[in-house]
Design a protein around this nucleic acid. Structure first.
Lengths: 156, 156
DNA sequence: GGACAATGATTTACATATAAACTATTTACG
DNA sequence: CGTAAATAGTTTATATGTAAATCATTGTCC
């Protein structure tokens, strides 16, 4: 399962274009990273999305509105509600409706959530090392540059 | 929504490691590609996964067992059943249980499925062009090389 | 040749994604 | 004011993705 995409899709013939080949390679690589990440996080009772929410909250250093979190997750809005629900069930975050603007719901990281994040930091670092560590630093930097460039679309 | 990941995750501080930064960039880039791909395919009544199944079948040039399709999708097995169900509902594929080994279900592309694929080819090529076309050919080739290398893990 | 393991596929249970519609508030504006 | 537009979240409906359990069929091995 670790051959090149051309081999994995054998018998399919050449790609329509280099752009397509690059896009499919990014998609497939991400699938596998996501899969491995999910396996690690499951040991801590979290899904990748749930982890990302906690991580965003820790990074922000303060409570954030639900939609702000959704935006940083690149997710469509509706999914955020159930996500927060389950995190709240686990007492990892807390909802607070604002007094100023009662439409806004702030989501805050709880001490329990912060502690869980701390437990994940080291294993996650090791996972990323094992998944990407066989690339040189120069290659990693180039991969970062290229994916960043890929995300800056002229029409976005 | 198109800034660099460092900016998008502002206030979060530096990444734990270069490996992690690269992995997150790949994941985030794939999310956005997947999102755009989904929007295009929806116009044709397909989801990305459904499209991938049809594409795999066309590439194979012959009917394939369900598990063979699942393997090429990198997906866990159970998901394939409902996927094929919905494609069959749309008459895009056909199930055939083998005579030799009645455990095996072959999935075949129908003429209708093949025709639909043909209608998608050109718009999809244009989409990939618009998403990745601002990278040079050398950059695209390097992106392919790096993502392929990222997928060849020592322990996989 | 008959119990048992192995294989191919499906079912079940749960958590995401996505789109569309809807509710509650707040703001803008005549 | 006071009603329409805008904003923040939620609900509903459908399709995935993952894991665990199950079913049907085939293969193995005393």
């Amino acid at each position: 399962m670790s051959g090149k995409l051309k081999d994995e899709l054998k018998k399919q013939g050449a790609f329509d274009s280099l752009e397509q080949e690059a896009a499919l390679n990014v998609l497939r690589t991400a699938d596998r990273l996501h899969n491995r990440l999910g396996r690690l996080l499951r040991e801590f009772g979290l899904t990748p999305s749930q982890y990302n929410v906690l991580r965003i909250l820790r990074g922000a250093g303060q409570p954030l509105p639900s939609l702000e979190i959704a935006e940083r997750l690149i997710q469509v809005v509706p999914a955020i509600t159930g996500l927060i629900d389950r995190l709240e069930d686990q007492s990892l975050v807390r909802r607070e409706r604002l007094q100023d603007d009662r439409r806004v719901v702030h989501v805050a990281l709880t001490p329990k959530g912060r502690k869980l994040l701390g437990q994940i930091d080291q294993p996650l670092r090791e996972l990323h090392k094992s998944l990407m560590g066989h690339l040189t630093r120069a290659e990693l930097q180039e991969l970062v540059r290229l994916t960043e460039k890929a995300r800056t679309w002229p029409d976005d």
